[in-house]
Nucleic acid binder design. Sequence first.
DNA 1: CGCAATCTTGAACACCCTCAAGCATGGTGG
DNA 2: CCACCATGCTTGAGGGTGTTCAAGATTGCG
Lengths: 250, 250
Amino acid sequence: MAPTIKLQKAAPLKVSCQQCSLSNLCLPLAVDEQDLDRLENVIEQGRIYSRGEYVFEQNSPFRSCIAVRSGAIKTTMVTENGDEQVTGFYLPGELVGLDSLSSSKYACSAKALDRTSVCELPADQLEELSHKLPGLQHHFFHLMSQEIQNSHQLALMLSKRTAEERIASLLLSLSSRFQRRRLSPTHFQLPMARNDIANFLGLAVETVSRVFTRFQQQRLLTARGREVELLDVNALRQIAQEASDDKPCF
Amino acid sequence: MAPTIKLQKAAPLKVSCQQCSLSNLCLPLAVDEQDLDRLENVIEQGRIYSRGEYVFEQNSPFRSCIAVRSGAIKTTMVTENGDEQVTGFYLPGELVGLDSLSSSKYACSAKALDRTSVCELPADQLEELSHKLPGLQHHFFHLMSQEIQNSHQLALMLSKRTAEERIASLLLSLSSRFQRRRLSPTHFQLPMARNDIANFLGLAVETVSRVFTRFQQQRLLTARGREVELLDVNALRQIAQEASDDKPCF
DNA sequence: CGCAATCTTGAACACCCTCAAGCATGGTGG
DNA sequence: CCACCATGCTTGAGGGTGTTCAAGATTGCG
């Protein structure tokens, strides 16, 4: 129960969803002016969290869904016997908290992996608004079913794939998500620590480390700390057992 | 691409949702008469599938969500390189296909594990109707976010739990789902084969078998084929690492 | 600069998988 | 009705992938 320290509550720069560079990823609505106004009245913008700070905590009252604007967020679930499972990594343009819509409490915790700014969609207004805007309802159905698929893909990986396959998959997933944002798909900073990768993929930290060095020996990539450059994407795809022209898993 | 053999398309006995014994599990709507009528006009009832038959197949056009009335269904995903992952088991009162709402094709296949009757909620009418009935929209948000949580719980199990823990969890999950339907929580038929259990839990069939015999030696349960009797639920709970008064995982 | 956190590397062990064979079960056909 | 075969389940032995434990290297930050 670490107290969440809010260093920066203040003065977010107000940006409308229309102007937001992520609008096509986050809430790509085919709606008219009036609908957009409604949406923007509901969304609270610009909260900034610093690295390590909790955006929300498991079992605390479900207030809102979170859209990442910059930075990165990891979500974790804690079991009764105390061990933690990382359930996802969320980059700009992605929505956190969809798994909590079912109850009055957050189903997981969300922690900023970096200096991170977010927009909030308050829970109480979310259902009402998506009732008024069929496009929004559709989008939420879409996002949630996507999240289910992603989670199933993750389960498949965890139950059937080797350490190398899992890590190759994760790297490729990150790669394509960076690409979506017009960033380099081959040269980027990992938003998370080795520890988080290990936990997420169901491996020991040591294994993750070993696989990274093995990949470097094979000239598939170079990595110094969190900085990664993918040298042979196709080889990684083969390892990940993805068809080359296929969508990423998660 | 095995052709689906439809032995029984005929003459389902028409039962209204109000009369259905599963109504409180399936679509527990706090809606008025008129709304229920609307719902029932949309739902197609009583298709019956025999054991092994596909209810729908992955990548075929998404037609409808499926509510199980009797029997049981397993869902599976196939990857490009051909191996199959069981993503869930669905018992009467549970909804199949929520992970496909995002696209025009089914994200997984659904196969009857037994003689199984279902109700269908056609895709095209589903969004429209849940727009008209806020209660239905709420319920779908609820179900989908529950499904995400379940899948996260599964991921946690696959990445962190031993074979014994996983199997204990599955048995307890089935137990409480039988109990919900006013059936014995300690004495029931497994709807699925060992093979399916193994695949679902990310284990080899042999491991599943060995754990079952070990559990029997410890007098935790008796099993003959698919018939199972749980003898020491609390011990199983401890193994599964559940708090005794807690909700089941999946 | 020095401490803490993160990451890497090595050696031994454990859990589960693979392979292989034997055993029930149930459905089919002679 | 029983033999037969297919399928599903169980049991055993051996080996591999990843974990655990332990120590050292590197990085980041006050």
